[in-house]
Simulated assay, not measured.
Amino acid sequence: MWRNIASNALSFLVVLVFLGAGVLIWGQNQYTVEGPLTQPICLQVERGATMKRVSRNLADSGAISSGVLFRLGADYADKSQSLKAGSYLVPEGASMAEIVDIVTRGGASTCGTEVVYRIGVTNATVQVRELDPVSGRYEERAEFDPAAEEEPEEYKAVRQEADTRYRIALAEGVTSWQVVQELGQIGVLEGSVEVPPEGSLAPDSYEIRPGDAMADVIARMQDAQQVILARAWENRAADLPLNSPEEALTLASIIEKETGNAEERFLVASVFVNRLNRGMRLQTDPTVIYGITNGEGVLGRGLRQSELRRETPYNTYVIDGLPPTPIANPGRASIEAALNPADTDYVFFVAKTLDPADGHNFAETLDEHNANVAAYRALERANQ
């Protein structure tokens, strides 16, 4: 009899093992299979939220088939304690595994309402916008110039919402003085800083939170620029007339101010590198302007002949070689152009038209350059 009981118990255990294995396989399949979401949603994970609360929100939104399986899968992947606060775009058909990865890997929020503080070369604006999860496009809700306009009600309203995200968008070619001035006026950062060295800030987009220290934000910008510069310097072309990463940064800032056309940055870089190699003066207006303004605001007029003749550390019509510091904060593309210029014999360039977006005409000889200058002057006269 005991033998029969033992045999039946063993059979029962075998059945249980097979059933358990089947349930496990089924659960794993449900966790990784395409989810029921029929269109993208914006999932908000608040600070202090738990995986249970997130799973409940997902189930209510129809994004997952089982909150229990979602939590068990997160536990099994050892991610239950790794929730990151933010607003996340959950795509159509996302599996539970994919959603767990989205809400635990961190990084910038990918949807919801955001305020963007845009610091440009000539002005600064504040933009309130919201991502439509279905179309994947941002819809502008308000935009204003904080120096000239009152704060719109839309902006005041989103400032009161706990889930509003904030970003600083730094344009290529802004000066360090401009950055510090604008950061001090946006009203969401704490503290103040001295103006950092010119060229040391990486133009990019930075997510911030109200109450962040301005010094910490500036440090992030500086760290990013150091990484970009170090990598570009390591991969630089051979035989450049540049003795240090700092000189490369200075040249990159001049390239940045001379052209906003991404396709011709490497050509502009070749002109300056060729001039340095031949012992020719750079003769570039943006350096002269920086010597007048010190990067504090925009000159707002053309250069005078007396200014082009005046000897300053930044007047490249008078001094040899590079100026002593960068004249703006160059972006990654200009840094890479400075350290890997196009292979040309160009030593001159002048604007093609009165619209800077149209780029420049390049020349190898003075005669060719003079002809290009004459064509540009004719356009100026016709416009007048």
Rank of each mutant, 00 (worst) to 15 (best):
A171R: 06
G173A: 05
G173I: 00
T175A: 12
T175S: 15
V179S: 06
L183K: 02
L183D: 02
L183C: 10
Q185W: 02
I186R: 03
G187T: 02
G187P: 15
V188N: 01
L189R: 00
V193I: 09
V193Y: 02
E194D: 15
P197A: 13
P197Q: 08
E198A: 07
G199E: 06
S200H: 01
S200R: 07
L201D: 04
L201I: 13
A202W: 00
I208R: 03
I208D: 05
G211R: 00
A213E: 15
A213D: 12
M214E: 06
M214F: 02
M214D: 01
A215F: 07
A215M: 04
D216K: 14
D216C: 12
A219K: 13
M221S: 04
Q222K: 14
Q222E: 13
Q222W: 00
Q225I: 08
V227W: 00
I228C: 05
I228N: 06
R231S: 14
W233I: 05
N235G: 10
R236I: 00
A238F: 03
D239F: 06
N243K: 14
N243R: 14
S244M: 11
S244G: 12
P245C: 07
E246Q: 14
E247N: 12
A248C: 12
A248P: 12
L249E: 01
T250L: 07
T250F: 03
L251N: 06
L251V: 14
S253E: 07
S253C: 10
S253R: 00
I254F: 09
E256Y: 07
E256S: 12
K257T: 06
K257V: 06
K257P: 12
T259V: 02
T259Y: 05
A262T: 07
E264P: 05
E264K: 02
R265G: 06
R265W: 07
F266Y: 13
L267M: 14
L267G: 05
S270M: 08
V273H: 05
V273K: 02
N274F: 10
N274H: 12
L276T: 11
R281L: 03
R281V: 06
Q283A: 12
T284D: 01
V288Q: 10
I289M: 04
N294F: 04
G295E: 10
E296F: 01
V298I: 13
V298S: 14
L299A: 11
G300L: 10
G300K: 09
L303C: 11
R304W: 13
Q305Y: 09
